[in-house]
Design a protein around this nucleic acid. Structure first.
Length: 386
DNA sequence: TTGGAGTCAATAGG
DNA sequence: CCTATTGACTCCAA
C-alpha cells in the first residue's frame, strides 16, 4: 500500500485566499448541461494541479471532511448539485454518495481522493459559501431569463403557463433510450441469496440466474459487481465507526437485528434518532466483535453456504489496515496549514449509522473462501464446457 | 477476461 | 426544487 508520503511540501502555496477565480465572465447561459469538461473549477491554483495536490496531500479524514461539508451546505441551503458541479465536478448522485459514505482515505485510489482534496480546499476557502451562493444566484437568473424568453417569443402562448417545456419532442425516435432496468424486490432478494451462496458466481451460474429471473446476463453481472462493491463499502464504514467509537462506552450490544422479513439488511440503518440536534442520546456502535455461533434469536442465517468444510471456519476476516486512531497526526508544512483546518467537533456527535450485517460478514467469508479455492485449485471443479 | 473503483444519470421520495 | 438509490459504463490493473 502506497502510504501517503505526506512529504511536508515546502512548496510556497502562497495565496490561499486565491484570487477571484471568475476570469471567464462565464455567462450563465446554457440550458442543457455544461458539465465542467476538463478545466474544472480547479480553484486553489497555486501553481499546483489538483492531482499534484492529491499526491502530496497528507492523510485526510474523509469522515470529518464530509461531515463538515454537509453541515456547511445545509446550513446555507446549498444543494449537492450545485456544490458537486461547481466545486467537485461531479453530479448530484455522486456527491450524495460521497457525502453519505465516504471511504477511508487509505482505501481510496488517487482518483478517489481528488474529491476529498477539493472539499478540503473548499472548506479552507474563507469565501466558499459566498461564492457558491453567487453561483446559485446566477443560475437562477439564467433560468428566469430563459424561461421568460421562451414564453414571450415562442409560439407557445399556452395559458396557465409552462407545462412541460418541450425540451425535445423528438418522438422518442428509436426509443434508443434504454428504459433503465428496475429490479423487483423479489429479484433482488433472489440475487442477494445467490450472493450469500456465492459472491463470485461462475459465468455458468450467472447464466442460470439470468434465465431463472428472466434478466439479461449483463444485468446479473452488473448487479454482482455493484453489490460486491457496495457491500465492501459498507464494511469500510463499519470499520471507521468501530475505530471512531474508540474510548467511552464499550457500547451495548445494539440488539435489534431481526428483520421482520428475511430481507437482508442491505438497507441497514436502524438509524433511529434523527433530531438534527446534536443530542444523540444512545450511542450504539456496532461492536466488531464476532461471536462464535451463539447468537440469540438471530435472524435466519439462511444460506447454508457450507461449501468447504468447517476447516476454513476459523478464517479471519482480513481486517486490513485498521487505521489506528492516532496515527494520522499530520501537520504538513505549507500545504499542511492548508489541509489542517479547525478540526472541530471531537464531541461525541456521531452518526449512528449502524447496519445489521453479519450476513455481510458471512458473505465476506465466502468471498475469502472463493479466493482461497481459486488459489488452491487452478480450475473450478466443474464448468468449462466446450 | 475478470474484478474493482469511480461515476453517471434515471428515478423514487420528500 | 432536493437528496438517496442503483443499474450501467468507463478506465485500469492483474
Amino acid at each position: 500500500a502506497p502510504e501517503s508520503p505526506l512529504s511536508s511540501a515546502e512548496e510556497s502555496v502562497k495565496s490561499l485566499g486565491e484570487p477571484a477565480t471568475q476570469p471567464p465572465a462565464s455567462e450563465p447561459s446554457d440550458p442543457p448541461e455544461s458539465l465542467a469538461p476538463a478545466p474544472l473549477p480547479v480553484p486553489g491554483h497555486s501553481g499546483l494541479s489538483i492531482q499534484e495536490m492529491v499526491a502530496m496531500s497528507p492523510e485526510l479524514d474523509t469522515y470529518v471532511i464530509t461531515k463538515k461539508v454537509k453541515e456547511v451546505l445545509t446550513d446555507n441551503n446549498l444543494g449537492q448539485r450545485l456544490f458537486g458541479e461547481t466545486i467537485l465536478g461531479l453530479t448530484q448522485g455522486s456527491v450524495s454518495d460521497l457525502l453519505a459514505r465516504p471511504k477511508p482515505w487509505h482505501k481510496l485510489s488517487l482518483k478517489g481522493r481528488e474529491p476529498f482534496v477539493r472539499m478540503q480546499l473548499w472548506l479552507s476557502d474563507p469565501r466558499n459559501v459566498e461564492k457558491l451562493m453567487d453561483m446559485k444566484r446566477l443560475e437562477k437568473k439564467a433560468y428566469m431569463k430563459r424561461r421568460h424568453s421562451s414564453v414571450s417569443e415562442s409560439q407557445s402562448v399556452e395559458a396557465g403557463g409552462e407545462t412541460s417545456q418541450g425540451s425535445s419532442p423528438q418522438h422518442q425516435q428509436h426509443q434508443l433510450k434504454k428504459p433503465r432496468v428496475v429490479l423487483a424486490p423479489e429479484e433482488k432478494e433472489a440475487l442477494k441469496r445467490a450472493y450469500q451462496q456465492k459472491p463470485y458466481p461462475s459465468p455458468k451460474t450467472i447464466e442460470e440466474l439470468a434465465s431463472q429471473l428472466n434478466l439479461k446476463t449483463s444485468t446479473v453481472i452488473n448487479w454482482f459487481h455493484n453489490y460486491r462493491s457496495r457491500i465492501r463499502r459498507e464494511l469500510f464504514i463499519e470499520e471507521i465507526q468501530a475505530a471512531a467509537g474508540e474510548g467511552s462506552s464499550p457500547s451495548a450490544r445494539g440488539g435489534k437485528a431481526g428483520e421482520g422479513d428475511s430481507c437482508d439488511g442491505t438497507e441497514s440503518d436502524g438509524t433511529v434518532e434523527g433530531r438534527p440536534g446534536p443530542a444523540s442520546g444512545s450511542e450504539e456502535y456496532r461492536g466488531v466483535s464476532e461471536g462464535g455461533g451463539a447468537d440469540p434469536g438471530e435472524a435466519r442465517e439462511e444460506a447454508s453456504a457450507e461449501v468447504p468444510s468447517g476447516t476454513l471456519a476459523s478464517q479471519d476476516i482480513p481486517t486490513s489496515a485498521l487505521s489506528p486512531p492516532g496515527t494520522s497526526s499530520h501537520k504538513g508544512g505549507a500545504i499542511g496549514s492548508l489541509f489542517s483546518f479547525p478540526e472541530t467537533a471531537p464531541p461525541g456527535t456521531r452518526n449512528p449509522r449502524d447496519s445489521s450485517l453479519r450476513k455481510k460478514k458471512a458473505a465476506n467469508l465466502n468471498n475469502i473462501i472463493h479466493r482461497l479455492e481459486k488459489a488452491a485449485s487452478r480450475e473450478e471443479p466443474s464448468e468449462w464446457e466446450f
